[in-house]
Amino acid sequence: MIEELLRSLAPQVLGILARRCGDFGAAEDAVQEALLAAYLNWGEIPDNPRGWLLQTAGREPP
Results as ranks from 00 to 15, higher is better:
Leu14Ile: 04
Gly22Ser: 06
Ala38Ser: 08
Pro61Cys: 11
Ala18Glu: 12
Ala18Gln: 09
Gln12Ile: 08
Ala37Asp: 11
Glu3Leu: 15
Pro61Gln: 14
Phe24His: 14
Leu14His: 06
Trp52Ala: 12
Val13Leu: 08
Gly25Phe: 01
Ile16Gln: 13
Arg19Gln: 10
Gln32Leu: 13
Asp29Lys: 11
Ala18Lys: 07
Leu54Gln: 03
Arg20Tyr: 05
Gly51Cys: 05
Gly22Ile: 10
Ala18Arg: 07
Ala27His: 04
Pro49Ile: 01
Gly43His: 07
Trp42Glu: 11
Thr56Tyr: 01
Glu4Pro: 01
Leu53Ile: 05
Ser8Lys: 09
Leu14Gly: 03
Ser8Tyr: 07
Ala34Ile: 09
Thr56Phe: 02
Glu3Thr: 15
Gln55Ser: 12
Gly22Glu: 04
Ala26Val: 09
Leu36Ala: 14
Pro11Lys: 05
Glu44His: 02
Ala30Gln: 04
Ile2Met: 12
Leu54Ile: 03
Pro62Ala: 06
Cys21Ser: 11
Glu3Met: 14
Glu44Lys: 02
Ala18Val: 08
Glu60Val: 11
Ile2Pro: 07
Pro11Gly: 06
Ala26Arg: 15
Asn41Cys: 15
Glu28Cys: 12
Leu6Gly: 08
Gly22Met: 07
Ala57Val: 04
Glu4Asp: 09
Ala18Ile: 12
Ala10Glu: 11
Gln32Asp: 12
Ala10Lys: 10
Leu36Arg: 13
Gly58Arg: 07
Met1Gln: 05
Arg50His: 00
Gln12Arg: 07
Glu33Asp: 12
Glu33Trp: 08
Pro46Cys: 04
Ala57Phe: 01
Arg59Trp: 04
Arg19Tyr: 09
Ala10Trp: 03
Asp23Arg: 10
Pro46Glu: 06
Glu44Val: 02
Gly43Leu: 08
Leu6Val: 06
Cys21Glu: 15
Ala38Ile: 05
Glu60Thr: 14
Leu36Met: 15
Asn41Lys: 13
Ala30Arg: 08
Gln55Glu: 15
Glu3Cys: 13
Leu35Trp: 03
Leu36Gln: 15
Gly15Val: 06
Tyr39Asp: 14
Arg50Pro: 06
Leu17Pro: 07
Asn41Trp: 07
Glu60Asp: 13
Leu14Pro: 02
Glu4Met: 09
Pro11Leu: 04
Gly58Asp: 08
Pro49Tyr: 02
Ala34His: 04
Leu54Ser: 05
Trp42Leu: 09
Pro62Cys: 01
Leu5Phe: 03
Arg50Cys: 09
Gly25Met: 00
Ala10His: 09
